[in-house]
Design a protein around this nucleic acid. Structure first.
Lengths: 207, 207, 207, 207
DNA sequence: GATGAATGAGGTTTCATTCAT
DNA sequence: AATGAATGAAACCTCATTCAT
């Protein structure tokens, strides 16, 4: 929509950039950053190698742009999910649903992100790792505040530090998604996403 | 103990191998697999580069051996923890304690493992990723059986599929450890490791 | 003056060409031919890269045009200096003065020229080197003829081959200028340019 | 001679290094630094490209080593020439002879050196230019002191600043050598090197 | 006629691996 | 058995040049 307003040239450039990023995401998430050469990205994206370097200063810059852009989208969606006008229980339901959806529809990125944020960063110079963790922790604070308000509302029992609860919720969602990811038949994704919350609510909510 | 029975030559070789693996773990976990050269490993381990290739076919093989060996130790400790003659609740307490301890005393390996098992494998050819996941899922089955027996014993309520509960427990332990790992002052590790179980037990155990 | 007679279009083109050459001289003499990219020239000259290629076939051609043009101006001035109606002594005085002036007011070009004419030519294909040396030797003949006539006039003693004297005079002028160029305070340029000639005249002219 | 005392390995390494430097000198002086690729050097020297990088950190380092090594030899010879126990006139004769000899037997290096020391340095980062000029000026001081002592001895008349005389002598020697270099038949090198001094001595020495 | 996006050959450098000693 | 010098494939990146607009 906004794109329509841009001059044709600009729109074209944006489209090319997206194509490069998409190809890079595809390759990086399949084979790992270090097992993908810039020539490979160029070829698969059907650009000349030099053209890629017009858009991104170097390989790291391409990677960085790719990760940050995906993070933005992911984060935006999650924030929107917990900033509904609903009550805290509904917010968490929303959150679980959104996180699951995003996870499942962006698997390539999820793999990339997990490697970067959890494991040994292979991208030391850029400090990308640091930045991602910082962003994640900032987000956790927001999620924690949902628990916090829920506790103050008496909707939840204070069974643990809200920040810790937020981290635990995330980890449980992701664990269940990873199970499904690795063996969809064996660990079918719960039809009703709310079941993930049960384990929490059992403890959180008074019967 | 067994080493003593080996001829001196063999013992010496084993010691050398351990030294190489320890150095490799050190370097790989600090800088990432691709940012460490075989020369670096050789130099830090104080062997000639050729000597390393006598012990390991190639870089990937070194990495593989290193990861598998650490996994063995990790796994052994965890299995031992849940194969005590205690009741199910105590077994889980033991498990949380052991996993936390191991995690904290083997940080280098943990980072490496998370990258490999969760994220984009950077070691595609070797299929290490596959193997690790398989091993992990096998282990999860054992942990799940503890929940299963607890449920059958009526010690736990069946709030979810035991396998799923096992995965969730692991993820919650690790999440809490990662919080602590990134910011020890801000997220001090719970003095009483059992508090991690609370969230589970609140739901699991009848009041 | 002649420019005025050209159609506006032509005049404009000439002006653009001059601007490109001036920018190129500036950059090449500062950073060296190979450390300046055509894009850099284009940007600094405020033309599109394609426009430069309308005026010069390729980078080498640009360089060539630049050097030859500067040489023309330099050479013209020097020839004029020795083609005055004065006697031979005055001609040489004139020559020293002119060469020094030109040298000092065209430092960028001088550096470029010295590199090209004396040292390893970095511009082999174009044969620019050859051409410059040829031109220089032709010029030396003219200068030599001044010495020659002076000797025949008995104004100078024949202390050496005139051609050789010409080369020696040039080299002494340039050496003194290079000293000044590298450390103006330490080797101030002789207030009276004639002092450079003294060493020659002491030998050349009968007391 | 000294080499014989080195362990065989060391001698071999030194020989290889010399071979690389000789090849590089050959190529650089023929085609210019920027027109020679490291692969070219490797191939011509009959080493693998990696082997060259074992000896020299990078292309610039190779170039730098090459220039500095040649300079050392050149400088040593020149210093020896003027540190004979002879009188000042003989010292200068010696100097002219030595400089000419060295020049003629090291043409490749001379071209390289002139480009670097006189022209636009193409090696900006390394500051090689600066270093070479500094060395040259230091040497000029030594040569100047010969003139200085000669003047104090009354062997020479003080027709100019000794430092300036030193620079002038060098430039005249080199100019005559460059003439010969470009057209040996046309400008045969003076059979008696002393003739180069004549122009100086005529002015310097009382008849 | 001017533009500058796109191209891709070719440069420098690294590093896993081999093999003669 | 241990060594480490030598190898060369392959990575990243630049930049002269073209050509569709």
């Amino acid at each position: 929509m906004e794109d329509k307003k841009l001059p044709r040239r600009e729109r074209e450039k944006l489209r090319q950039r997206q194509e490069m990023l998409a190809t890079a995401l595809d390759l990086f998430s399949q084979k790992g950053y270090h097992n993908v050469s810039m020539h490979e990205v160029a070829e698969q994206a059907e650009f000349a190698i030099g053209t890629i370097y017009k858009f991104f200063q170097n390989k790291e810059d391409l990677y960085r742009a790719l990760v940050l852009e995906q993070c933005d989208k992911f984060e935006d969606a999650l924030i929107q999910a917990i900033e509904t006008p609903d009550d805290e229980i509904e917010k968490l339901r929303n959150y679980v649903r959104t996180r699951s959806e995003r996870f499942r529809s962006n698997l390539p990125f999820v793999r990339l992100f997990l490697a970067e944020s959890r494991g040994v960063s292979f991208n030391i110079k850029a400090g990308l790792n640091e930045e991602l963790r910082k962003r994640y922790y900032n987000f956790l604070e927001r999620l924690a505040s949902v628990f916090d308000r829920g506790i103050k509302n008496k909707r939840f029992k204070k069974i643990a530090d809200p920040y810790y609860l937020a981290a635990a919720l995330d980890s449980v969602i992701d664990a269940s998604l990873l199970l499904w990811l690795d063996a969809p038949e064996r660990h079918p994704y719960p039809e009703d996403p709310d079941t993930i919350l049960d384990i929490f609510f059992r403890g959180l909510i008074d019967p």
